[in-house]
């Protein structure tokens, strides 16, 4: 009896501890987003009114900024481009990265290590420098001013990123698990597909999400390789149309930020839920 009570009290205390710690994080993460949302719904007169309360909307919610974004710019075209580019570039990179990451984590060839290091080291050169020679390559490939120029170049930073991240996850999987399978006569590829991938799934999901976001937010290549409005990505398009010299269309810019991130977050959470929660549910007993 008494033991039960104590453990219940402990449970409550532990939960309270958890929430008390999570709340500041959530607040820190969410407040700027909240601020973007209300800025996107506020009229300009209130935005520029020094006497108004900055985190409220006092003179009525308006949708003009969204209407401007959707009606006066090619926002949906840009979103579509961003989506195609990100999905294709991330998927291609992921496949390469799984193979490369696994080889680096497990295989013991002489060349593997130095190749891996070389791949990573090219990653140390920032895109703000690489875009110049890459723009030549894009022209040689006959891809300039198309979304394919981005689909082809994005893997150059995605593959190193994903490979090394995945390698880390592959290494967390105890070697014995795999060795059992290998002893049972499974081939390397079979072991990878049947044993390693399912176990590394959280890492793969993670890697996909972050890789996707890197392409989604990429700016330098998207700016320099593509010129026509119809082929621009969301970030480049939005800033090009809504920041005009010293005039910022604050409401519409923030509306763009909200629309370009909210659907993605929902998909992400669904993903995370599906894999991470399923696994965590039983992992820790309260």
């Amino acid at each position: 009896m008494q033991v039960g009570v104590r453990s219940r009290a402990e449970k409550i205390r532990s939960a309270a501890f958890g929430y008390a710690n999570v709340v500041p994080f959530v607040f820190f993460a969410l407040f700027p987003f909240y601020y973007m949302v209300i800025t996107s719904l506020k009229n300009d007169a209130e935005l520029y009114d020094l006497k108004s309360v900055p985190f409220l909307i006092q003179t009525g919610v308006i949708t003009d900024h969204y209407r401007y974004l959707f009606g006066k710019t090619e926002f949906f075209t840009w979103m579509k481009n961003s989506l195609i580019i990100s999905v294709v570039a991330t998927s291609v990179s992921l496949v390469i990265a799984i193979l490369a990451g696994y080889s680096l984590a497990r295989l013991r060839f002489r060349g593997v290590s130095s190749f891996g290091t070389a791949v990573f080291i090219t990653y140390l050169v920032p895109p703000t420098l690489l875009f110049l020679p890459l723009s030549q390559v894009v022209v040689w490939l006959g891809l300039s001013d198309t979304i394919w120029s981005l689909i082809v170049t994005y893997p150059t930073f995605l593959v190193p990123f994903s490979t090394w991240l995945l390698m880390g996850y592959f290494r967390t999987i105890p070697r014995e698990v795999e060795e059992c399978a290998l002893v049972d006569g499974a081939s390397r590829i079979q072991t990878l597909l049947r044993i390693v991938l399912p176990m590394a799934l959280p890492g793969i999901v993670c890697c996909t999400l972050f890789g996707f976001t890197l392409t989604w937010n990429e700016f330098t290549y998207a700016l320099t390789f593509v010129s026509q409005t119809a082929n621009k990505t969301a970030v480049v398009g939005v800033t090009a149309d809504l920041i005009r010299g010293d005039i910022y269309y604050w409401g519409s810019l923030m509306a763009g930020a909200v629309v370009a991130s909210l659907p993605i977050v929902i998909v992400y959470v669904w993903f995370l839920d599906y894999y991470v929660s399923g696994l965590t549910a039983g992992a820790v007993k309260g």
Partner: peptide, 9 residues
């Protein structure tokens, strides 16, 4: 969220 919102914005 902070990671997903385009940095430029």
């Amino acid at each position: 969220l902070p990671w997903v919102i385009p940095t430029a914005l």
